[in-house]
Simulated assay, not measured.
Amino acid sequence: MMLCLATGTKVLAFAVSTFTLSWTHSVQRTEWWERWEVTEAGIRPVEARVTSSGAGMEAPEGAVEEADGWHYVPHLPPQHQVFLGASGATVGGWTLCAGDSCQVVGATAGAPLALWSDKDCSHPPETRP
């Protein structure tokens, strides 16, 4: 399976089994980080960290505080698609790291970015938020 990312009219494909997403909260200016798995059933978050809490950034029940923030395991089933907002009003975009490369996506206002898994990224999500 491939990780697929739609950025407007462009679709990028990554041959990876895991990837990470990180971003900075627009109000609290604190980092949120997630590690995801790419499966045939969809993409699924398997680990997450938030550096501090406040303004919607509260660590969930069961989170463990470590030197770099609150760590926890998200309890979500595989997602068929995930949309990332691109308002342009935040500190920056989303940092997507797949394999040995990282790139910032959604740093400027625009259509939502879409993530999904597919054998060749030829079947983008049909439903937009």
Rank of each mutant, 00 (worst) to 15 (best):
G106R: 02
A63G: 04
S53W: 09
D118E: 04
K10V: 09
K119V: 14
L21R: 00
L3D: 01
V11K: 04
C102M: 07
A41G: 08
F14V: 04
T7F: 06
C121I: 07
E61R: 12
T95N: 04
P74Q: 03
V73R: 12
A6K: 12
E126R: 14
S22P: 01
A67V: 05
E66Y: 04
M2I: 09
V104W: 03
Q79T: 11
A55F: 15
T24V: 14
M1C: 11
L5Q: 01
M1I: 14
P78F: 11
V46N: 02
W33H: 00
R35S: 00
W32K: 00
A15M: 09
L12F: 06
W94V: 00
T39Q: 09
A109D: 05
V38E: 03
Y72L: 07
G54I: 12
H71L: 02
H71Q: 04
P74H: 03
K119M: 11
K10C: 03
H80N: 11
Q103W: 10
S26D: 09
S122V: 13
G85N: 15
F83K: 06
P125S: 10
T24E: 08
Q81F: 13
G62N: 14
H123V: 10
A98T: 03
A107E: 15
R49Q: 00
Q81N: 12
P125R: 04
F19E: 03
A41T: 13
G110A: 05
A86I: 05
H80L: 13
W94K: 01
V91W: 11
V105P: 06
L96Y: 01
S22N: 01
R128V: 15
R44M: 09
